[in-house]
Every structure is written in structure tokens, then in C-alpha cells.
Design a protein around this nucleic acid. Structure first.
Length: 699
DNA sequence: TGGGGTCCT
DNA sequence: AGGACCC
């Protein structure tokens, strides 16, 4: 639609094979729904215009642009599919509360769920009010820079932000006040409407006699535990109650890249080989742009089995030899033939070609993506980063220490990946895109929430990225002001002085772009001219952890998170402010104190695209600080618990925490559960970039 | 009923 | 390797 505005006013459906995967609102008004068969759709609406949508390239690229744009405001952005993003805007809200007059904290942008804006109670939640203004600005920015429209929800958790984002549909935003949680949960027509309750879970719940959200809310937990186990049971019941303590975990670069095609029938080896080659060919291209080296190749098939399940796939995977992996990364086209050979071996492990077979789908996937290393021995690089700068605050030091350990400890494992994609739909530009607008849902989780529900929900930790490292700012225009280009973000555990001692090319490498697939996009150019000089104390202050700058733009720009008041007034002001960027070294301390005492604020922003729906949620939570478990848990006591109980708890905490994951091989060496570094920082985009430069083998 | 993804077991 | 979830 964006590419072809003429389609805007006509019923439009995006077709993938035999179904309409999504459609615009014109078509919806005519009775079309998502995932409707093309035949049914045509029957209902003969004048329906169809656009093929099997190729996700444009959608994916646009999706990442949206995510990157949001990250330029604050790095705590978590993707959910191609058209939704959750964003933890707690920091941004706090900053505005400090910097703007109180009178600014009591008006809402957009709708307030179940309230009249004139309702007095609305005034009791200044953070949500400020969050609604931020959401409006984010949507406006996405619209002006990318031409996309969408919805947003502002609430205190991802769950709530997501739910509320869809309450006013096309291109609108809604804020959910804590006192309306019961209402919104009660408004859901069934358990399947609760995010996190899928088909299987809904069936099992139904077997227990549970159909409505209220049924689940009131069901005895003990009975639920019998069916699902303690952890799942509690999570399910909490979801029904509108309680979601999971953190917004920065998504970072994708963990895998795959390409697939489905068809009616494929029954010869030659056809399979050809299809495998086609799939690998396009994947290779994407992989090369990504820049990382895949360590694993996977082939997945779906067999036709008349009676039952068309679903159910089978897969086989194998390691990719280093020499081939390097060809992939370098773009050497010889890799294709070698990969086809490997894939066919995997195929023969699953399918006995001496007898008839009938496939309906093939999928090729690269996973275990490994960031590449700088051309220097790792040992030497790693040693550069062990020195610490004298000027950190204590609190930040602690975080950094922890981070360093976890990062270094995991270097041997596979580095995670960083960034993810974007894609949204566009509403108005030029040519071929189909996806709808972008919805955004922000959610804010202020202390009010802790008061309401769980007092200590706030204790989660943000091991992940810092909050304020900046995003990429988009274009040069924005980066004009003095001072903007001088301070690249370095990971908190990297001493700027030491960094400066590195050869320039190594410095550049360390600071090079993180979003390979979108590297050519509008958001990424500032990289090259940037010169790293120092890290910003303010960054450290905010971040609980790493601030690696992977993205080009981040180098030249200060963290948008720190926008000041001026941000408030106009977009232009905001940019200016960003550049001028002031650092406040002591904010960290301040923040920490807040965290501990009370308050966990979360904002979540969910975006939904106009036709489809995508959402962006903002959430944030402050946590205690750094170790592997909640601050209120005594490690000693924990260690005395039975191993099984330890595992259960860890599994639960893990979900709540934004831990970067570096998954690793090192995790196998019997570390105590507490030490489990298995998950370290892979998720944060920032961390990821840096990690790419360390070889896997080093550990 | 598509073409992606994520994480957990 | 499969299964659950999400879009």
C-alpha cells in the first residue's frame, strides 16, 4: 500500500499460497478476516485485490527499520514477530518527570481504557500519562520517517500493553490504568485471547472445565499445578489475572535465518535438490549481509500424510565446517554447492528415497550465528578490556564487573546475535508494500503496579543492555549539533582509555554496525565518520549493563533516552536536545535507589500495523542489581534448596529477567545453577556486536 | 492455512 | 529433534 497508494482505498488482501494472510481495513469492513482462504474471500468480496506476499524481504526490512527507529529512543526494544515491538520506556518517563513541569504529567494522549479523559482518577498516574505522550511521539516519528501508521498501548506490563493496544483500532493508542486491569481481562472472550495461551494450552484448560478468563482466575492453583507443574500453573493463572512480570528483553540480532516454501507435492529427489538450492541461494544472500557466520545448517520437511496432520515437521541439522562458513560470510559463491550437498545428506537421513515420498514443505535454516572476530588474536583483545576506569560510580562498577565476567566467561561460547529486523507496513509511500500500519503499545508499569499486585515484582534485574545507550539516530540532519559525534558508546566494561590505545582499525571493527541486514537503510549511515573517543559516564550510569555499541548510529549519537524536556515540545527540539545531550553521572545512583525501594515502572509500547497488526510495547522494570537471581533471594539459602527446586526457581526467574544470552558451550561444565552463564549477553544488541569479535574457539 | 521467528523440554 | 508459543 505504501508503494502503491492507489491500493489504499480498495479492498486489498495479501495472499500467500491459498490464504489471505492479512488485509487492509477496507477489506475488513467487507467481512474479510485474516487467514481466510482465498476462495472464501473472493466469494465474499469479488472485487478484492490480491497481492502476493510470500516474499517477506520488504516486510522484513521495514520491520527492522521500525525496531531500529524505536531503539534510537531507548534500546530496550523487544520484537514479537515482524510487526510488534515492546519498549520499556521507564527511563524516558522518569527523565521527563524530572525535567518537565508537573503540569505536564497529567494529560493523556489518545484513549484511556474505560475512562473518560475528563475522569478525575486519570490524574493518579502521571507516569502512564507521560508514557502516553511518549507513545504518541514514537508513533508520529514512525509515521513521518517511515510512512507507517499503527496502534500503541501504554500499560505497566507487556501483557497489558499488548492487550490494550488493540482496543481502539486503526491507528490509535490507548493507555491502561491499573484499576482497569480486571476490566480488560474480563473483556476477553476466551482463554485463547490471553497472549501465552495457545491452542494446546487452551485445550488442556478446557479439559479441566475452564473456558473463560474468569474460570482460570478462580480455579484452585493446586489443581492447576497438578496439570501443568508449579511454574506453568502459576504463570497461566497470573496471565489470567493480568499479571505479567516478565521484562522487556532487547531482541538484538536474529538467532537464526530461514527460508521456506510449501507446495502441494514434491516427490522426487531432483525437485528437492532444486528447491533446496533456491532456498539456500536466497538465504546465503541474507546471511552474507548479516555478516555473522552460521555454525549450523538445518533442513526441515513436512510430509503429506493424508489422514492427519499436515502439520508436524521433521528436521535434521549438522555443523557447518569452518571453511564453508567463512565462504558464506565472505560471499564466496562456492558455498552454495557445498551447502546443497550437505542439505541433501540431511535429506537422506530423513527420507528413504528408494520408496515413494510426498513432501509439502521444505525449509532451510542457518542458526548458531557467530559474530566474526577482529583480525587480532582474541587473547590480546580480551586483555585490553580488563582494565577498569577509575571514574565509575560504585553501583555502575558493580554492574560492570558482573558484566565483564559474564561476557568474558562466555566468549568461548557462541556469541549471540544482536539485532533484529523491522518491517512494518507502510501506509503511504511508494511501491509495493503491504503490511499495515504500525501499532504501538506502550506500557507503563509504575510503582502503582507494585502496590496493586505484587509488591516485589520490581525486583527483576536488567542484566541486559543499558538503558540509555543510544540508538542510532537516523540521519545526519539529526546529528548536526556539536558534540553529537564525539562520543561513541562503549560497553561499560571497556575502559575508554584502553580503547583509545587500540589500533584504529580495531576500534572501528569493534564499533561497526550491528544490523547487517539493514545496514543500507536510512537509519544506518553515520558509522563511518565516527571516531570513538570516550565513553560516556552517563551511559554507565543508566545501564545496568553493557552498552556495546554495535550500531553505527549509536556511535555518533548520544542516547536518546536522555532526552530532556525540550524533547517534549517538538520533534525538532528533541533532536537538538539529543545532540546536546547532557550526561548526568549520578543518575545511576539515583535510579538504583528508586529501584530498590519501590518502584518498578514499566512502560510498554505495542504497535500494531493498520491492517495487520503489529504492536510495540514498552516495558521496563528495575531490578536489584546484578547477580543471577532476584535481589531478595539469599544465595546461601538458595544453595541449600534441593536441586530440583533450584532449577524450578531459576527457570522462573529466567523468564522474568532480561538476561542477554550467550548461550554457550561453557554452560556444560557443571556450573552451579547460580553461575550459569550459559545465558549471558547475547540478546542485547549492544552486547552482541562486541561479542561478534571474539572467536568462539577462544573458550 | 503462510512464512517467518522465539524459547523450552 | 520436537513442541509450544507469537505474529
Amino acid at each position: 500500500m505504501i508503494r502503491n497508494p492507489a491500493l489504499r482505498n480498495v479492498p486489498l488482501g495479501i495472499q500467500q499460497k491459498y490464504i489471505i494472510v492479512t488485509c487492509n481495513y477496507v477489506a475488513r469492513d467487507l467481512g474479510l478476516t485474516k487467514l481466510m482462504l482465498v476462495t472464501d474471500a473472493k466469494e465474499k468480496c469479488p472485487q478484492l485485490v490480491l497481492v502476493k506476499g510470500e516474499d517477506l524481504t520488504h516486510y522484513r526490512e521495514t520491520s527492522y527499520k521500525v525496531t531500529e527507529l524505536l531503539m534510537s529512543f531507548c534500546p530496550l526494544v523487544e520484537r514479537l514477530g515482524f510487526d510488534e515491538n515492546f519498549m520499556d520506556i521507564t527511563e524516558m518517563v522518569e527523565r521527563r518527570m524530572e525535567q518537565t513541569p508537573e503540569s505536564a504529567h497529567y494529560s493523556y494522549k489518545g484513549h484511556v481504557y474505560n475512562h473518560d479523559t475528563s475522569d478525575a482518577k486519570v490524574m493518579d498516574h502521571p507516569r502512564l500519562a507521560v508514557g502516553s505522550h511518549i507513545a504518541a511521539e514514537l508513533r508520529a516519528d514512525i509515521h513521518s520517517k517511515l510512512g507507517l501508521t499503527g496502534c500503541a498501548g501504554v500499560a505497566t506490563s507487556k501483557l497489558l500493553a499488548k492487550l490494550v493496544s488493540g482496543t481502539f483500532k486503526p491507528n490509535q493508542q490507548t493507555t491502561l490504568l491499573p484499576e482497569s486491569v480486571k476490566d480488560i481481562m474480563g473483556s476477553l472472550s476466551g482463554l485463547r485471547k490471553v497472549p501465552g495461551v495457545g491452542h494446546q494450552t487452551a485445550k488442556r484448560l478446557q479439559a479441566l472445565g475452564l473456558v473463560s478468563v474468569q474460570d482460570l482466575q478462580l480455579f484452585p492453583l493446586a489443581d492447576l499445578v497438578r496439570e501443568f507443574g508449579a511454574s506453568t500453573a502459576q504463570r497461566l493463572q497470573n496471565l489470567a489475572l493480568g499479571i505479567d512480570d516478565t521484562a522487556v528483553t532487547p531482541t538484538g540480532a536474529p538467532q537464526s535465518l530461514s527460508d521456506e516454501d510449501s507446495f502441494k507435492k514434491m516427490s522426487s529427489t531432483n525437485e528437492v535438490r532444486q528447491k533446496v538450492e533456491d532456498l539456500l541461494s536466497s538465504l546465503l544472500d541474507r546471511m552474507h549481509k548479516d555478516g555473522r557466520q552460521p555454525l549450523t545448517l538445518r533442513l526441515t520437511i513436512r510430509r503429506y500424510s493424508a489422514t492427519n496432520k499436515w502439520f508436524s515437521r521433521e528436521s535434521r541439522q549438522c555443523p557447518i565446517p569452518n571453511h564453508i562458513g567463512q565462504k558464506i560470510t565472505s560471499g564466496n559463491s562456492d558455498a552454495l554447492a557445498q551447502l546443497v550437498t550437505m542439505a541433501m545428506k540431511l535429506f537422506h537421513k530423513m527420507v528413504d528415497t528408494s520408496t515413494a515420498f510426498h513432501l509439502t514443505l521444505l525449509n532451510m535454516c542457518f542458526s548458531n550465528l557467530q559474530a566474526r572476530c577482529a583480525a587480532v588474536s582474541k587473547g590480546s583483545i580480551a586483555s585490553f578490556f580488563t582494565h577498569r576506569s577509575p571514574e565509575k560510580t560504585q553501583a555502575s562498577s558493580r554492574c560492570q564487573d558482573d558484566l565483564s565476567q559474564s561476557v568474558l566467561g562466555n566468549l568461548t561460547g557462541q556469541a549471540g546475535s544482536d539485532v533484529e529486523g523491522k518491517t512494518e507496513e507502510l501506509t503511504g509511500q511508494d511501491a509495493s508494500h503491504w503490511i499495515p500500519d504500525i501499532p504501538t503499545s506502550l506500557k507503563i508499569k509504575p510503582y502503582t503496579q507494585s502496590t496493586l499486585h505484587s509488591p516485589e515484582a520490581s525486583q527483576q534485574q536488567q542484566m541486559v543492555g543499558e538503558c540509555c545507550i543510544g540508538g542510532r539516530t537516523v540521519d545526519d540532519k539529526r546529528t548536526n549539533s556539536p558534540g553529537m559525534t564525539d562520543f561513541p558508546r562503549l560497553p561499560p566494561n571497556i575502559d575508554p582509555e584502553v580503547f583509545r590505545l587500540l589500533p584504529e582499525d580495531i576500534q572501528k571493527e569493534l564499533l561497526s554496525p550491528a544490523y547487517p541486514e539493514t545496514a543500507h537503510g536510512p537509519l544506518s549511515h553515520s558509522t563511518q565518520s565516527v571516531r570513538p573517543t570516550a565513553s560516556d559516564p552517563a551511559d554507565r550510569a543508566h545501564s545496568s549493563h553493557h552498552n556495546f555499541s554495535e550500531q553505527p548510529a549509536s556511535l555518533s549519537q548520544p542516547a536518546p533516552c536522555k532526552l530532556n524536556d525540550s524533547f517534549h515540545s517538538t520533534p525538532i527540539d528533541r533532536k537538538e536536545t539529543v545532540k546536546g545531550f547532557d550526561r548526568q553521572p549520578n543518575t545511576l545512583t539515583t535510579n538504583n535507589q528508586q529501584e530498590h525501594s519501590i518502584t518498578s515502572l514499566q512502560y510498554s509500547l505495542t504497535d500494531l500495523l493498520e491492517e495487520g497488526n503489529s504492536s510495540t510495547g514498552l516495558v521496563s522494570q528495575r531490578h536489584s542489581a546484578d547477580c543471577g537471581f532476584p535481589g531478595n533471594v539469599d544465595p546461601k539459602v538458595f544453595s541449600e534448596l534441593p536441586p530440583e527446586v533450584q532449577r524450578e526457581l531459576l527457570s522462573e526467574w529466567r523468564q522474568q529477567r532480561p538476561v542477554l544470552k550467550i548461550s554457550s558451550s561453557s554452560k556444560k561444565q557443571g556450573k552451579s545453577p547460580l553461575a550459569r552463564e550459559g545465558k549471558a549477553p547475547a540478546k542485547s544488541s549492544q552486547a552482541n556486536n562486541l561479542l561478534k569479535y571474539f572467536k568462539p574457539s577462544s573458550g
